[in-house]
Design a binder for these strands. Sequence first.
DNA 1: TCTATTTCGGACAAAAATATCCTAATTAAA
DNA 2: TTTAATTAGGATATTTTTGTCCGAAATAGA
Lengths: 144, 144
Amino acid sequence: MFSKACEYGIKATLFIAQKSLHQQRVSLKEIASEIDSPIAFTAKILQSLARSGMVDSHKGPTGGFEMDRTKMDTITLYEIVHAIDGDQIFHGCGLGLKQCDANHPCPVHEKFVVIRENLTQMLQNTTVYELASGLDIGLTLLKR
Amino acid sequence: MFSKACEYGIKATLFIAQKSLHQQRVSLKEIASEIDSPIAFTAKILQSLARSGMVDSHKGPTGGFEMDRTKMDTITLYEIVHAIDGDQIFHGCGLGLKQCDANHPCPVHEKFVVIRENLTQMLQNTTVYELASGLDIGLTLLKR
DNA sequence: TCTATTTCGGACAAAAATATCCTAATTAAA
DNA sequence: TTTAATTAGGATATTTTTGTCCGAAATAGA
Ligand code: FES
Ligand code: FES
């Protein structure tokens, strides 16, 4: 469904958010360990998320990643997925036609758009804060 | 969402089915042309679908691929996707945890299973015949 | 200022997915 | 029986995704 990069990106963001709820900055090393991801690859993804302003990064000793409390409410899974995987999953044809066009539909168009729309709505309605909270109270897990 | 192999496999199957509605066998060359796919790669996928009994293949002059009318009713998109892409999309964790387990859920589990279930139901409820019919009356398209 | 620690970013490497090439096997028809 | 057409299948190539390595830049604290 999502690329590995996207899975890591979501998990990293949620972990950063959860720690930021307690004013704790987390290092790349800690993140990769907690979400069970390859360090250097995770670094690339975090750099990209930092550049697009979803998380804040700081260099040097005591450096690391953190996330504004207010951003946790405005940033949804949709923004993260879109930033990393693009919009193919949101607007692309399920059978790979160059253009998904209701006027020239592929055989699965009618049924596929429903699924695609469900997914889009779900991602748009799910904030980072909501998921970070579930993590924080131990309701959900980021590995195993 | 689906792999390229799976997209080609679905389109090829639907084209074969549509032609079989008129007792017409179709060659690999014709299939690849009609669904706009690389010939040799499509051949691999069709070999696999033939081995798993979803379509019938015949060598030699007048050879090609065809599909039993009765199979069009029993084979759904689910079978095709499962045969080519496996069951990761139907049972795998949305965030890539090794095991999707409701008792040890990832942060998106609750919301993701709904989407996954919708997709599974849709694919299981969609027969090859239904889609081949839409193709046959010109309601839907396999390329462009 | 110096040092240790951290992210940044470019180059590189490995693995997986996608795609191609070529020969063998089969088979219908001349 | 010969020929031409077709799928089968193994080997190889290309592209994309995933993952690694290493030095540069920044920075907090000694
Ligand atoms: S045209 Fe294929 S999903 Fe819309
Ligand atoms: S545990 Fe992640 S989707 Fe079920």
